[in-house]
Design a protein around this nucleic acid. Structure first.
Lengths: 116, 116
DNA sequence: CTAATATATGAACAGATATTCATATGAAAG
DNA sequence: CTTTCATATGAATATCTGTTCATATATTAG
């Protein structure tokens, strides 16, 4: 308010400076958005949640979620590319399971947020 | 393999049953996906991260991130609708800040995941 | 080898979404 | 009251994304 310099620049310079120092580089922020984008789809969230309990093969998942086998396959690929699930081949089946614990904690935090 | 019942149904019945018991209802999963969708955009992630450090007004944010004022406004509305940020009016300015701690922890987990 | 089953992949289409542009609202200054 | 500044909003557009359909690959059974 009394700071004529800020008035002149039309921005709150000090805040800008503080934030610039702490914010990660563009690439990290981009990757982060890409990661959350993967969680941002009902089908994929359902798949991940299903895998909370046990590993499942593609057909199991499609039955369980009432989603076509093709759609499940496509989404599993997205999940695998982003290292959220891993797979194991057994005969004609491919079993998918969660790749690491971050999936649990990220989804957990999400649940907490919406349950308010 | 030896379980003829499973063979007949083409699915692993027991797994399906276990998962069905633990999976949240469709609405919760849908809301969860909607929440993560909000995090799944570079501009919004940048805004959230900027607000980690301090509250900021719209013009500050648009300067800081090199995004048009209009785009920032639109995205802030999305963030506010989803209760990720709150706002405070001061004269001509509207200052935005993070709405709660889940934002920190969700993004924190995301960072951990991509840093591997 | 042939048929059947399980999964994957590519192209096409439909629906969603982020930005831009033009403009509206609202507050302070002159 | 008029102008300027800060923010918000609505419509239009271009891009992105998820599903479907058709088909390919791969494994096992007969």
């Amino acid at each position: 308010m009394m700071d004529s310099k800020n008035e002149f620049l039309h921005v709150h310079e000090e805040s800008i400076k503080k934030v610039s120092e702490n914010i990660p580089d563009d690439e990290t922020l981009y990757d982060l958005a890409e990661l959350f984008k993967v969680f941002g789809d009902s089908t994929r969230i359902k798949i991940l949640y299903a895998l909370f309990t046990t590993e499942l093969c593609v057909y199991d998942i499609s039955q369980l979620l009432n989603v076509s086998q093709t759609a499940v396959s496509h989404q599993l690929r997205v999940l695998k590319t982003n290292k959220l699930v891993k797979s194991r081949k057994e005969g004609k089946n491919v079993f998918y399971s969660l790749a690491d614990d971050h999936v649990y904690s990220i989804i957990g935090q999400g649940i907490e947020h919406i349950e308010e």
